[in-house]
């Protein structure tokens, strides 16, 4: 899989979470990539491991431009 295809998958996963009403609650970035915690309501949460550089740029853009 090319890096672009990997990114497209990650982007779709992020978009899907947002569509389902989740919001980005926490981002932990380390040498393995970014671990993005999505939360809906009080006790419904999920973590996406975003590995590609474009994927990490994508959720940053969402955070930055909708601040």
């Amino acid at each position: 899989m090319t890096e672009y295809a990997e990114y497209v998958l990650e982007k779709e996963q992020i978009d899907l979470m947002l569509e389902k009403g989740y919001a980005i609650k926490e981002v932990k970035e380390n040498l393995s990539g970014a671990f993005v915690t999505f939360e809906k309501g009080k006790d419904d949460s999920d973590i996406l491991h975003i590995k590609t550089a474009d994927g990490r740029k994508y959720f940053s853009n969402l955070l930055f431009h909708q601040k």
Binding site: L18, G21, A23, I24, K25, E26, V27, K28, T37, E39, F59, L62, L63, Q66, K67
Partner: peptide, 11 residues
């Protein structure tokens, strides 16, 4: 702002 889980900016 979202490193400690405090912020909740993107929906």
């Amino acid at each position: 702002g979202v490193q400690d889980g405090k912020a909740n900016t993107v929906k």
